[in-house]
Design a protein around this nucleic acid. Structure first.
Lengths: 346, 346
DNA sequence: TCATCTATCGAACAAATGATCGTACGTAAG
DNA sequence: CTTACGTACGATCATTTGTTCGATAGATGA
């Protein structure tokens, strides 16, 4: 034990002069070569990352060339000697976001931190985050055509936007804003948006789900309807909500579909809805009597568009997952709760 | 004179209260802006350090300019959001550390690598290492009482800590923070600590060394002083510096003792100082006219505490050795230079 | 309400980092 | 002993990062 220590101290004394005789070490104990390197690497990493020294300083300190330090640092990283941790709640969100982005091939995915205590504040985060994204688009002065879906999230996002004078932009709704009873939704997201920017507004004068097939046909052939659909087709990006399919579904609560229709969808294993198109858990549009009467633009149309969904919350997770699986989305703004649930389900 | 001091103490208490109010005010509302910034900073840091993105990519992602990202990253580092850990036992330091630990029966001893040329960067290593240790303690949510000494090392360690909301903790200074001339040290380590955590602060309203024995007696019997001393006694751990006794001694440089007093200590073979208590080379507290006027809590009191010293550097080695020999310490964070010198002196 | 002041932002520049390539040295086979 | 191969090193260049300075917008106070 004591001899051991003596040896160690002697070794330490030697260490400073070691640079030029390293190979002596490794001739006598070849296995130590890599060890010594790793040791050096750790030292270099320490100086660089914690000490904040430049590679030149480290080089002169360690007695190697600057590229040598470069290689040591690369080695240290490659060997996983350097552990970086971001000490902030956002860190989790970022990790979740990039997982989702990579897995589903999204252009971007933003995950906002969810407050477990106050569910409403989480919704507000979502809105602000989405609003920022939208703001980036409408900020520019060249004319822009933007599509908007329905739903509380989209509404909230649009409301979180600040006023900017952009009369050259056009905003078009992808979903009919007429309820069964014929009443129009005065405060559609498109309305708010156009009010805030002074841009043009295009509303789909139709119910989400027509009463009959014939009614739908009549809608689709209307000149006005076609004109608006054309505008929608020109839009560069679309911000839409994702709906659940259950008793609390917006589609049902707002009387766009009847109770029996809801039951029919549930029977067909619908878990979510995009612009009124019901999706099964794999994200495929369910073909049924209801689907055939949906007046929204077909999802396939949006392949080339930048379709961004805004949705969050525990209960929405299955619906979001379905939409992702279907590959309909290019972007997603969600919250930590939903993101975590989705990642765990993968 | 005495009245003067009273006034001062009262003033200090008031000052403290005011600072607390200001702090709370600052935290509750206008901090929102700062919070958002930190969020952004954390995002940027994540993308940069974990995501491996370039600053240009991050800039376009976050919608700010590249220099903006630069500032965010700087903020993240400054606020301690970015924790870098080198996951490799650097053999030298490990060896030195375990030697010291075994020899002096310490609970732990951490030796950070130091470079002989740039002494200031060594101080930074020390700070980070010590900060990690402190962080482990304050991390927990049960109320904690922590003592802090003075000195640059302790200050730096506390500053290297990241912000954590821990209003339930209490921080108390073991050394008076009033200089001879009556001026109070506004940025005591305890202050910084409390600012970072939102915890309670307890400052010893006294000079380290009283002018006269009578003055010391007056201090010790003050209600406020006794109250704070009681809190200190309840603390579970103490992080303190180790002072040298020579022309460069902090105690002398900061006018806590006069030149003649310094000479007296040198004549009595003092080599170091712990909380103001001078030690000879065997670590025994030197009994002299000065010692009798020291207002800090007696070292014997800390027998059961977890007393950890933070000190490094060539010149501090004799003082550290003395403190170790005296058996006052349970833990030590030092640097390679000092550790090697101590090991060689054994 | 206006003037001034300060904090913030982005353009441009300087420094540092990461990557590529040619060279030289050591090793092993012919 | 020579030659061919592989490895590691360091000069050089492109890219990325950090800093400085002037401009701008919002805040503050008269």
């Amino acid at each position: 034990m004591l001899a051991d220590r003596r040896l160690l101290v002697a070794g330490l004394a030697l260490y400073d002069a070691v640079m030029n005789v390293i190979y002596v070490f490794y001739v006598s104990r070849p296995m130590d070569k890599f060890e010594v390197k790793l040791d050096q690497a750790a030292r270099a990493a320490w100086m660089s990352y914690i000490g904040g020294m430049t590679q030149d300083e480290i080089a002169s300190q360690l007695g190697v060339s600057r590229p040598g330090v470069q290689r040591l640092l690369a080695l240290a990283r490659q060997e996983g000697l350097v552990k970086v941790h971001i000490d902030h709640p956002i860190s989790n969100c970022m990790a979740l976001g990039s997982t989702l982005r990579d897995y589903f091939g999204l252009t971007y995915c933003e995950v906002v931190p969810a407050d477990n205590h106050a569910a409403d504040s989480a919704a507000s985060y979502l809105a602000v985050a989405a609003a920022e994204r939208i703001a980036q688009l409408i900020e520019r002065s060249e004319p822009l055509t933007l599509s908007l879906g329905t739903g509380r999230s989209v509404r909230a996002a649009v409301e979180a936007l600040s006023r900017v004078e952009r009369p050259q932009h056009r905003f078009v709704s992808l979903v009919g804003n007429v309820a069964r009873d014929g009443s129009a939704n005065r405060y559609d997201a498109v309305m708010v948006m156009a009010d805030k920017t002074g841009g043009e507004r295009f509303l789909l004068p139709a119910p989400v789900v027509a009463e009959t097939l014939a009614e739908k046909e009549a809608m689709l052939t209307q000149r006005l309807f076609k004109a608006i659909a054309d505008v929608a087709r020109e839009s560069e990006a679309a911000f839409i909500g994702i709906g659940r399919i259950d008793r609390q579904a917006t589609l049902f609560q707002d009387h766009f579909i009847s109770e029996s229709e809801l039951d029919e969808l549930l029977g067909l294993k619908a878990v979510g809805e995009l612009l009124g198109w019901p999706l099964n858990r794999d994200g495929e549009v369910i073909d049924c009597s209801i689907t055939r009467r949906v007046t929204s633009l077909p999802l396939e149309r949006f392949g080339k568009h930048h379709m961004v969904a805004i949705a969050g919350g525990h209960e929405k997770a299955p619906a979001i997952l379905a939409a992702l699986r279907g590959g309909w989305l290019k972007g997603l703004v969600t919250d930590e709760v939903a993101a975590r649930q989705i990642v765990e389900a993968l």
